[in-house]
Amino acid sequence: MMGNKAEPREAATVDRDAVAKTKRKLRRTLVYIILILFTIVNAYPIFWMIMNAFKTSQDFSLNPFGLPANWVFENFQDAWVTANIGTFFFNSVLVGAVAVLISIFSGALAAYFLSRFEFRGKKFIYGFLVIGLLIPIHATLVPMYILMQNLGILNTYWALIFPYVAFNLPITVFLLTSFMSSFPKEMEESAIMDGCGVFRIFWSIILPMTRPAIATAVIINFINNWNEFAFALVLISDEALQTLPLGLANFAGAYTTNYPAQMAGLTLVLVPTIIFYLLMEKQIVEGMTQGAVKG
């Protein structure tokens, strides 16, 4: 009798399992379909750009969407030489990296105080910094030029580094403050008991916990600096100090009739950004991969 009762129940469980399994399978398939569609939409321009970098300009204007008739490598060589990518690349990396370092370090410290402490004028300082999000940078070109002139730092790397820091600080502080304020305040209490100084707490407790947010802020900062054009155009006139976007603009002017060469230049410039993104993204999701053993 017992067996009689038990049997159908077992079957039902198997059934339910099977249903759940197919359900999960279906859902998984759906997820992949969405992701693949998304991939096509997102990657298409890149694919298109890289493909066209290998065409001659005639091939391109006859057949902008197809594969190259002949694979041409000259465009890359042209781009490297004409756009002088080597020098501009160095300048971009240098300016970008220094600006990111200053902006992230000082922004994180500011966010730490603004999120973990109570003091007079805090709200005002926070609001004051965040208003910077709203400043349209093109409005500041002329004043910025005059300012740099008076400070005597026109035509130096600093003429770019300072504005880059200033215009990335608001988003950095804004983002990091919101992350840091979400931690429970017990976090550093024991450390305080132990007599750790505030800077020590910042360095060894808060900073590591904010790693994903910091990585995100680094990415945003870096991409902004990497692509910035207007300040670079106005504040630097010495070609030995110019950054990549200007080099590419020179190059675009040189090859107005030659989109493929332009594509080759842009492809060369894209590679480092993707590598950089991959490095940073690892920081963002590291916690995830470490913790999620169960999957």
């Binding site: 070109l141 002329v142 030029y145 005059i146 002139q149 207007a230 155009l233 106005v234 006139s237 010495d238 070609e239 200007l246 603009a249 020179n250 675009a252 002017g253």
Partner: peptide, 21 residues
Amino acid sequence: VNTTPNDDYRTRLNTRAAGGD
């Protein structure tokens, strides 16, 4: 000698002019 892409020359020159430079 200093050259600027044609489309951006005026932005640069006008900014310098505004700075009296």
